[in-house]
Design a protein around this nucleic acid. Structure first.
Length: 441
DNA sequence: TCTGGGGTCCTAGGACCC
DNA sequence: TCTGGGGTCCTAGGACCC
């Protein structure tokens, strides 16, 4: 905790929805919901017009539709969000070299490293107001809520106090009186589970929490959380603003509209995910030693299995092979709703292959295939898995704009199954009056 | 047809080593 | 017959964040 309010937290208001409203004037003033539009999608961001109807982040899209049927439901344009976010982060870096992005729409800025010499409350307030105006200008009209305080914790709490389009500067020395009446959930790290544990011992507010001894807190919540909460309850937070943080893991996962039961299909999907992970590792010059798969069963139980190599890899073949072998040990007979692949234990170098590049280490090229028009019509966004005959292969559709084509060639009836996915925005919308071909046997 | 995706951090137990 | 103790690595699961 510093002597002056020099930590700034900026949060773009209803960011994804605001970008959509900026780019599509017809959506302005109307409820907009960005998130998964499939059968198992959840809301990522709701515009303030949609929040009036009780639509919230992390709510299932199904429920959001029930609450606000007339909202525009959009699946998101991440390039546009990334682009707008970059503009904001660039602007913040003009203000201070020490900017810590937390996500596309949030960042801490260390004002102690800015050109602002006078860190008094009036000076910081005027500075933050100017910054908010510059954000509006830089983004083509998006507003931001800003909080400033003597620590990250206080700055973040402050930015939340006057949303949207607000500014709160917490004067040094007033932190505890601000926090005491607040719910314990304002403390970062206190989620539903911790809040429930605290509630059971009669702790609801930060003031309640302040009365609990450090030993008691550690007994209740474990070492790390106990000490952490003990400090934050007293507004003690010395975490520095850190500009560069290295990635610790890279992962890809997907939830399917219909539970998967076909092991061959699961293996195909893992293979595809492994290649996506590999691509992202390579793009950033990374490789990792630990490969993990994540499997969520039909009843939402979530399993993970991992294995660690002697040296790091970024090879799609290696990652895919390990992922498939980890899956082999799991009982998925009840159906699988989510599959994922991740790599951790990252190093910014790849082990030199002492024996030279081996061909089998790379996944073989998947075939380029033309998806015939008749199969496109059978695809439906958010619908159950769709099967369509297609020459010697057949098409499975799952998830918006993604078609997975799977081949079982006539000459190798029991041979290897290969698959690839393609994204095709033209595949929607689905026209329900059109008949579907029968699924393959 | 409740419950995304991409992350981080923590805990606890077992293996293994000295 | 006894059965310490610290450190590190690995695995699995869970809580949490945006």
């Amino acid at each position: 905790m510093r002597g002056e309010a020099s930590v700034l937290h900026l949060d773009l208001d209803a960011f994804f929805a605001a970008v959509e409203q900026r780019d599509k004037p017809s959506l302005r003033g109307k409820p907009v919901v960005v998130g998964g539009v499939g059968g198992r999608g959840v809301v990522s961001t709701a515009s303030y017009e949609a929040r009036v109807f009780g639509v919230r982040s992390a709510m299932s899209t199904r429920e959001a539709r029930a609450r606000c049927p007339h909202a525009a439901f959009l699946s998101g344009r991440f390039h546009a969000y990334r682009d707008t976010s970059d503009r904001v982060m660039r602007l913040l870096r003009e203000v201070s070299p020490l900017v810590e992005p937390l996500s596309l729409d949030e960042a801490f800025v260390d004002l102690a490293r800015s050109d602002l010499e006078d860190l008094s409350v009036p000076s910081v307030t005027a500075f933050a107001e100017r910054l908010r105006e510059r954000v509006v200008h830089a983004t083509g009209g998006l507003t931001a809520s800003v909080g400033v305080g003597t620590s990250k914790f206080i700055a973040k709490v402050a930015s939340d106090l006057d949303k949207p389009d607000g500014l709160v500067v917490v004067a040094p020395g007033t932190e505890q009186e601000l926090l005491r009446p607040m719910d314990v959930r304002v403390i970062p790290g206190v989620g539903p589970a911790t809040a429930e544990r605290l509630r059971r011992v009669g702790v609801h507010t930060v003031a309640d929490l302040e009365r609990v001894s450090e030993d008691e807190m550690v007994r209740l919540l474990g070492k790390a959380s106990g000490h952490w909460l003990y400090s934050l309850a007293r507004a003690e937070d010395d975490r520095p603003v850190v500009a560069e943080r290295e990635a610790k893991s890279v992962s890809v996962e997907g939830t399917y509209d219909t539970d998967l039961t076909d092991r061959k299909l699961m293996e195909s999907l893992l293979t595809r995910q492994a290649s996506d992970v590999s691509g992202r590792l390579r793009k950033h010059g990374l490789s990792g030693r630990t490969v993990t798969i994540k499997v969520r069963l039909h009843d939402f139980t979530t399993l993970s299995r991992s294995t660690t190599l002697g040296s790091p890899t970024d090879s799609p073949g290696t990652i895919g092979r390990l992922a498939r072998s980890l899956l082999a040990d799991l009982d998925t007979s009840g159906g699988v709703r989510l599959l994922g692949v991740g790599v951790s234990g990252l190093a910014d170098w790849v082990q030199e292959d002492l024996f030279g590049e081996t061909a089998e280490d790379e996944e073989e090229e998947l075939p380029e295939v033309e998806v015939p028009h008749h199969s496109r019509r059978t695809w439906a966004p958010g619908m159950d898995v769709v099967h369509a005959e297609m020459g010697r292969g057949w098409v499975w559709g799952s998830g918006r704009g993604v078609v997975t084509v799977r081949f079982e060639t006539a000459d190798t009836p029991a041979g290897p199954v290969r698959s690839y996915s393609m994204e095709d925005p033209e595949l929607s919308p689905w026209r329900p009056d059109e008949s579907e071909p029968a699924p393959p046997a």
